[in-house]
Design a protein around this nucleic acid. Structure first.
Lengths: 231, 231
DNA sequence: CGAGTTGTTGACCTACTTCAATTCTCGTGG
DNA sequence: CCACGAGAATTGAAGTAGGTCAACAACTCG
């Protein structure tokens, strides 16, 4: 994997994948880099949209609050992902908050510059549109999951999704560390219920926990849980 | 509202809103119109993507099957909307089915032509990207709803969404006719539960039913149901 | 060493789903 | 024209998943 230091210094980032040399050079003078400490927010839901972000390193959660102390984690973004692109729609405010779950660095491009780039650069717009299409696809899949799947299945699903997004290290653990709070928000269930299910899974030898790290031991069985074949 | 017969004969359709005269003329020779009978499908989930559709008249539901006899209705499309644009993402198969709930006419453009149009025409791509952004926004909102809202609130929400999408006729009824089955699939609940809630609503004077037609009598109260202030 | 936060568990309770039974609607054929 | 059956509408009753709450353990920090 070759590094690309033209736009945002990240290996294989969204922009680099585009191979749009002219644009990558153009943004060099426009982008600003920000470091985000763990637990700090890049923007909060309701904030006016001022620009768009690209994740350089770390992990960001996109989440929506509900009922003052409940939240749903919509998705995680890692190095190479776009962030805040929903601001490009009709709504001039971010619909979600973005908070770092690990120390992160993002690069920022103000909206007016980005929009004018889009209007000129069809290939960039096309690529971004594909990102949207894929995200919409994911979003709808999880919509269905939330409606029809049991909590147990949703949690199994969450584990598999995490593994496929973040991959595993040599020791077999998924390369991301999340609090139980975050795990429960991500699978759309209560803190306590998550616990009970995790216990069940560990006892049945499906997953293994070491602190905040997760290892999947029996993915076939997890898939069975998802499709409901495990009663 | 002026008619636009250049592209697909529909008043104020997606393409016309673009004001892309060159493209509208270009597609005249490429588009094909199809009439869809009520209950018939335009495409089914899993079908390979061959093109993109624009709704000319009628109402189409986009829905996903689950567990052989359960479905979730993702959204309704009416005259002027795009359909099947998710096919533009990485996935080469439609993730949802599209079925007419009222007799409909759609116009079809094959994918290769549409894609090459997109690559050339930045304004078209940009507009389509905005459609995606808005849809993604909606999708996430309803994701949150499905996770955290009670069934009662979800049904109230569904009614309000239908009114805002389809508007009301002079007699006050929402300009769309859906079966109870479809209503329950749209609000992600069981047929029977929908009933009980509808009864409750009618008795409390929040909505009125006449066959398949719906009239909202007390929207303020419905909103209260949604936010949970009505216990 | 106590006070506060964060993890862990058990018991309860309610909002739904599911199932079953009954009634209603309507098309079809005798 | 009516009887009949199939499918939808309607309602009630039962069972349960999982959210909530409250108690307790364990770990952190002054």
């Amino acid at each position: 994997m070759k590094e690309c230091r033209d736009c945002c210094d990240v290996q294989s980032c969204f922009l680099c994948r585009l191979s749009l040399d002219d644009w990558r050079l153009a943004i060099k003078s426009h982008k600003k880099n920000f470091s985000i400490k763990k637990g700090h927010s890049i923007f909060k839901e309701g904030d006016p949209v001022t620009g768009i972000y690209f994740v350089y390193s770390g992990t960001i959660k996109a989440h929506k609050r509900w009922d003052n102390e409940k939240e749903l984690i919509i998705r995680f973004s890692k190095a190479g992902d776009v962030l805040g692109h929903l601001g490009l729609g009709a709504e001039p405010r971010y619909p979600v908050s973005a908070t770092a779950v690990e120390p992160s660095v993002v690069c920022y491009i103000d909206l007016s510059f980005f929009e004018s780039s889009l209007k000129v650069n069809a290939a960039l717009t096309y690529k971004l549109m594909q990102v949207f299409a894929d995200e919409l696809h994911d979003s709808r899949k999880s919509m269905l999951n939330f409606v029809h799947m049991s909590v147990k299945a949703r949690i199994a699903q969450a584990f598999i999704a995490l593994k496929s997004q973040f991959g595993t290290a040599d020791d077999g653990y998924i390369k991301v560390e999340l609090s139980r709070q975050d795990l429960s928000s991500f699978s759309g269930t209560s803190y306590e219920t998550l616990f009970k299910v995790i216990n069940e899974f560990t006892q049945d030898g499906l997953v293994e926990f070491s602190g905040r790290k997760i290892k999947l031991l029996d993915e076939a069985m997890l898939s069975k849980v998802i499709s409901g074949d495990s009663l």
